[in-house]
Design a protein around this nucleic acid. Structure first.
Length: 198
DNA sequence: AGACTGATTGGCT
DNA sequence: GCCAATCAGTCTT
């Protein structure tokens, strides 16, 4: 999948990592490890991030912050490294990580992961989802996200965080495309702010 | 208060 | 390809 990077595997991604611009952070998150301890299970879910999208500021017609500060978007105005989860279609919890400086509403949407390990999930679920979890709704379901994750700080949280993976995905293996499902956003829908591995 | 929409998915025709 | 599920957020009356 990529070349080996010595000595960094398992290191938690820091505040500094997330405080940069979303267009820098989003592609760098591809290949990183996501770890989540859900409310309902004892095990830790681990996945390698395979697909992300960037949402960038009030001017971005596809970003939830286009309506300004609301109860839902408030966390996007917070520090880089905070978790922004929201419910879509009354069914799926979407996982985002806030990036950029304070009061700069940006976030990375996690749209796909490759599962490394998942110890205590029910057997039928594990079989039905296999090792790839593609699509943001499926990611949220696999990780058993809910509103309690809203505002969690991935630089210090004991139940959700990111780590260096120990290898680096070659730039040539990362595909850049337009974002999915944001046609309503006009010109902003044409920005190539989606990145996926292979 | 009511209508409409959505950073989606899965099932059925 | 079409559409229901299901509810928070936003817009209209």
């Amino acid at each position: 999948m990529g070349s080996i990077v010595e000595g960094m595997m398992g290191t938690r991604l820091s505040r500094e990592f997330f405080e940069r611009d979303v267009l820098t952070v989003a592609p760098e998150l591809v290949g990183k490890v996501l770890r989540v301890k859900s409310n309902k299970e004892d095990g830790t879910s681990r996945g390698i991030i395979t697909e992300v999208e960037a949402y960038r500021g009030e001017e971005d017609g596809a970003c939830h912050a286009r309506f300004g500060r609301t109860r839902r978007t408030e966390v996007m105005y917070g520090k880089g490294g905070l978790v922004y989860v929201y419910l879509i279609y009354g069914m799926y919890w979407m996982l985002n990580i806030v990036t950029g400086e304070l009061n700069q509403p940006q976030a990375v949407l996690i749209r796909g992961i490759r599962i490394i390990q998942n110890l205590k999930i029910k057997k039928e679920k594990r079989l039905s989802l296999k090792e790839r979890v593609g699509g943001p709704g499926r990611v949220g379901r696999w990780l058993q996200l809910d509103d309690s994750f809203y505002g969690e700080d991935v630089t210090s949280s004991q139940r959700i965080w990111f780590e260096e993976s120990g290898f680096k995905i070659q730039e040539s293996r990362i595909i850049q495309t337009e974002r999915i499902g944001v046609e309503y956003a006009g010109e902003w829908a044409r920005k190539k702010w989606r990145w996926l591995a292979e």
